[in-house]
Amino acid sequence: MNQHNGATSLAEGQYEFKTDVNLIFGKQCLEKTHVLRTTLYSLPVWKTRNPGLGLSPFKDRATGVTKDASIIDGEVWIFGINASLAQGIVAAVKIASRYYNVKPSVLLSDIYAKNLNVEGENDMANQVLIRVNKNLYINTCKALADAARQLGISGKLNFYVFSKNNNPKIPKPDLVDALQSGGADSVVTDEHRSRVTVGNNQGTRHISQLTNFHLATLKV
């Protein structure tokens, strides 16, 4: 049995709708034993978005930057991590790899994100939103590869993305284009779709849908 199945999730919005990091292609599951979950939201904001959720927060300064973290259901959650900046990803992976006592590559080989979407969309026309969302995916791919290099990881990263093919905020052709511009060698889409619940950025609404599942391979 492989004891070291790990994964990192990006841009978690709400505990209740956390990203499925066990899913792989063909509707198969690969149970991850070492999971790092990251969210853009700071700890105070996270608390208001997830009322009633028990946290055991601690601060970690060991990586040079102070990060709020918590263990939830045996998984490491790190707050205030911007997925499009390598520095934060590096810090989060370091904290989690120390907690689990595994190499960073265990956590960062498989990365999951569900519907990355920039803030402030209410003021944007869809065409503008698609453009900024493409940049968000491009910068996230670059940040992941950069973080991997800083952590001494070589080889490839599997970046799994949940996003519906006709998602008006970033349709599949734009998503694929962005992932490739961000450095993906290949982008493939699973023929199976999965049912997910997705919260909006404001944390006020959520939607249940059948979504597509993509895999971008990033070379480091």
Partner: peptide
């Protein structure tokens, strides 16, 4: 409408 935060499905109705 455009700018609707839950419109990530591309369906006609929610």
């Amino acid at each position: 409408l455009e700018g609707c935060s839950i419109d990530i499905d591309g369906c006609d109705f929610y």
